[in-house]
Design a protein around this nucleic acid. Sequence first.
RNA 1: GUGGGUGUAGUUCAAUGGCAGAGCACCGGAUUGUGGUUCCGGGCGUUGUGGGUUCGACUCCCAUCACCCACCCCA
Length: 420
Amino acid sequence: MSYSIPRGTYDILPKDSYRWQALKAKFTELAKAFGYEEITTPIFEVSDLFERSSGESSDVVQKEMYRFTDKKGRSFALRPEGTAPVVRAYVEHNMASSGNNKLWYWGPMFRYDRPQAGRYRQFYQYGLEFIGSDNPYWDAELISFLWLFLSGLGLKHLRLELNSVGCPNCSQDYDNALRAYFQPHLESLCPDCQKRYETKPRRLLDCKVTTCKQIAGSAPSQLDYLDEPCRDHFAAAKSYLDKLSIPYTINPKIVRGLDYYTNTAFEIVYEGIGAQNSLAGGGRYNGLIEQIGGKPTPAIGFAGGIERLLIALENEGISLGESPGTDLYLIPMGEQARDFILPWINRWRMEGITIGFDPDKSSFKSQLKAANNSQARFAAIIGEDELAQESVMLKDMQSGEQSLIKLSELVSTLKTKLNH
RNA sequence: GUGGGUGUAGUUCAAUGGCAGAGCACCGGAUUGUGGUUCCGGGCGUUGUGGGUUCGACUCCCAUCACCCACCCCA
């Protein structure tokens, strides 16, 4: 063995590419219907962008970022997530001047994590960002996009979980309340949770250790600590979701990993694809744009993991994106026939016909076999008889029927047969 | 970063410490221009890599790398 692919990465081979293309086509189609437009940002940015936006203490920044310095000693990072770069572009190009902005992206992200089912070091995300309004209608519309996209693919076992993480003021109150609640139990918590008590008390809520679970069971709920504007926002968002007929469940334990989230937080959970069962997650981030140097601007967005989505689709036996196959496989018999047919090949291709031809296959039999293996719809046999008549023997590979077709009529004949 | 499992042919898998094998796939052939079914034929592969134990290692031990799964965290 000479070289192997870097850990936690994978190749998308041709047979997989058809699924990817089909999936992306569905996504872009729906995004277009919702009035979203594509934005593509570089896959690396100055490290500081992510450190500031995600939060210094977040795991992403602490241990998962691919950092490197360039020749002038500047620190860059492979993007671990898509929102901060989009917001950077929004501010840098003064996109606020064009009013509300609806943006979508699709591309690779990078996190230095131990690979696992549905988790990679280079992984792909699709996402939407809506920038420019705090109206809870947009929360509901964006969430409805995600729901329609996923359920529209045919997925059945989806669950939309909803929460509000409040604003900086009330979330601070909540953290204090949580610490007050857990403080007497500190001794019996697992070591991880004892750390979490200091850094992110909310993380105590979804610990998997049974004793922690029991203690967390009657902890105060985030929702009881929302201040009035946050409570109103959440109530309005929920009522819009009801009006849009999007089913959801309230889960006050939803925690966002990155620091910039405010108010509405949501997640699409899909059981049965391993421990990493979150297909997509997102929320409102009203403070982020100001934080990275723009004018205070409310926004909301989400990101979904493509690998997990593909696993879920496979899990439900949903296939999409077949290989288009070969339209016509050429079988010239002998050198003379081959030279005769050669000038035609690219002409036919320019007409949009997928041509198969392999000069390495010499015998008639092996050429027919190759036609069969490439799942060609038709084969064109050109021997002495056909040569003499400027024709090919067009063979339907499924029925086995064949008929002599003039070269000048081949394209039109094929087009009617293929479009059927 | 921590723990468990697994690495043998393109692939799925066999092989008490004693000659590395099978199915599928692939290639060739079964009278000269008809594939898919059938029949016949075709496999020396650094047993992931590097050490060690042994007369002898795919098999046991150590290290290392990769993959899978879980913790952690998240998409």
